[in-house]
Each structure stands twice: as C-alpha cells, then as structure tokens.
C-alpha cells in the first residue's frame, strides 16, 4: 500500500521540551487513521510538522513523497483542521467557508451547505461569539467539504454534544465511503472514535508507542479480574501491562495473544477474562511507558 506520510527520526525540540522525539512513523493511503495520545503527547506538534507549519529540529518528513515545507503541490492536497484554530477579529463562519472553498480544488459546496444546516451553524455571527461546539463545527464542515486527499482532524469534536458528535461521524463515514481518502484523527476520547478507525497509532512524550491495524488489536490485550491471590498466581506466566488492586480484588491488563496454558490457568483460578477495550489498552501502554521513563 502507498504511504501518504512517512517520517524518519523526526524531532521537534523546544528549550525544555521534546515535543516530538526521534519519531519514525508512516500512514497508508485511503484509510482512516487514529492518532492517539494523552494531552501534551505531541499529537498537535506532529500534525503541525506534517503540514509545514513548524520547522523540524531534525529528521525527515515526506508527504505524498515530498517535503511539505513551503510546498504548494503538497499543501493543495492537504486540509488541516486544528484544535483551537484562531480566526482574525471580525470574521464570521461564512468568511472562513468562502476562503476554504477557494483553496480546495475538490471542494463540495453542496456538502458544505448540508453540513451547515446539520450543525445549525450561524453563518453571519462573529466567530468570537460562537460556542466551543460551533467553533468545532466550522472545522468539521471545512474538513469534510474540502475533500482533500489528506485531511487532518485534531481533536475535532471538542465541545460538541452527543448528537452533534454522531452527526460528525455519520457525515465523515458517508463522505469517506463515497470519496475514499486519507484521514488522520487525533483524539484522547478513544473508545468513541475507535469504531471509525482502521489503524491506531499511539504516541506518548513525543515518541511512538505502538501502531496497529484495529483488527490486529482485537487480540492485543485482555483484562483478567479476580481475587488478589489468584491474580498473583496468574501473573507469573504472562506479560502484565497494567495492574490495579482494590482491597482483595485485582485486575490485570495483559498483552495478547494469550496461550492456551495461560487461558486454562486463568479459568482454573476463576479469573474473569475480557477483551481489553482500546481505551484500556491505551491507558495500559502509556502508563507502562511512563513508569519505564521514571525508572530510567
């Protein structure tokens, strides 16, 4: 499969912070990718580097095979919906929509109009006076209607209520189904976006923790719960990602796949086995990375 984005040993360091650190990662064409990480993990910085808004400290970036920096050919095929995008004073949603429409060759005005209606976005109100959710709606409308070959959504649904979020997912899936393209969605609300994603990339502290197809993740982690003594006996034979103890009860998240022996042992020890949700796995992976960092 063609790689739309490739980075190698990419770093963006500020005085005290390594926002992105030695990151080598790639993203396939025409899939919906999830970029997951805690707040401050480096998701936004990575997206800003990929869209040429920031200059890398070191390392290499290829987008559509070229450097995105000052590259019109690449940028014309890209649409970046930023979290907390600022707009000039006095701007109204219709101004933003009109500018975006002029910038994207594949812009679909009819889709844009539908979405404006769907989100009930007031087109002639000052952007400063809009709610957080309406601000997010502007980004979502531009991101979907632009129909760019590569679209970044950075935490796209902040401030949206449950109905508006469902509207977003419906609109995104419908448009993606009709016009497949590469989409990167960053999020820290994981389980809700998980079904939309085809791949999951977790970064933490500016570094890559894991990258998987969602289907592979089905067997990536399991949770076992039972009495503390039983869990103690069980954990000798498996790789534990995270453990929580409450009184005499314990839960462990374990890296999959689970061997038949381990499964039988768990059943003999009367442990409850369940597939870990993406959120559980994410917490477990980032927590164990944090602990490893603290030890080092």
């Amino acid at each position: 499969m063609t790689q739309v984005i490739e980075t190698s040993a990419l770093s963006k360091h500020y005085k005290a912070v390594k926002a992105v650190n030695d990151l080598t990662v790639s993203f396939d064409e025409n899939r919906i990718h999830g970029l997951l990480g805690r707040n401050g993990a480096g998701k936004t910085t990575l997206m800003q580097l990929l869209t040429g808004q920031l200059f890398a400290t070191s390392g290499d970036i290829r987008v559509f095979g070229e450097s995105p920096l000052e590259n019109t050919t690449v940028m014309q095929r890209t649409c970046f919906i930023q979290e907390g995008q600022t707009y000039p004073d006095g701007f109204e949603p219709r101004h933003v929509i009109s500018i975006a429409a002029g910038m994207h060759e594949k812009w679909d005005q009819q889709r844009a109009d539908e979405l404006v209606e769907m989100f009930e976005l007031p087109m002639k109100r000052k952007i400063k006076k809009l709610s957080r959710g309406q601000l997010s709606a502007i980004g979502i409308i531009v991101g979907i209607a632009s129909r760019a070959d590569l679209t970044f959504f950075d935490e796209p649904y902040l401030g949206l209520d449950a109905v508006a979020r469902k509207n977003f997912y419906d609109a995104l899936l419908a448009d993606y189904a009709a016009h497949p393209r590469t989409i990167l969605i960053s999020s820290h609300h994981i389980d809700e976006v998980a079904p939309l994603l085809e791949t999951v990339t977790v970064i933490d502290n500016g570094e890559l923790l894991m990258q998987h197809d969602v289907d592979e993740l089905a067997d990536a982690a399991f949770a076992f719960a039972g009495t503390r003594a039983a869990v103690d006996q069980f954990t000798g034979s498996v790789q534990v990602l995270e453990r929580t103890d409450i009184g005499g009860l314990s839960t462990v998240v374990v890296r999959g796949p689970i061997t038949q022996d381990a499964a039988r042992l768990a059943s003999d020890l009367r442990l409850d086995k369940s597939r870990a949700s993406l959120q559980d796995l994410f917490v477990a992976v980032t927590e164990s990375a944090r602990k490893a960092r603290q030890k080092a």
Binding site: L173, A177, P195, L196, E198
Partner: peptide, 14 residues
Amino acid sequence: TNELAQHLRINPAT
C-alpha cells in the same frame, strides 16, 4: 459494506 458502515457507525474496512 458502506451501508453497514454508516448504519453501525464503523469504519468501512471493518
């Protein structure tokens, strides 16, 4: 595939 994906709000590939 697309009908299922939109109906269940899941990725079409899935």
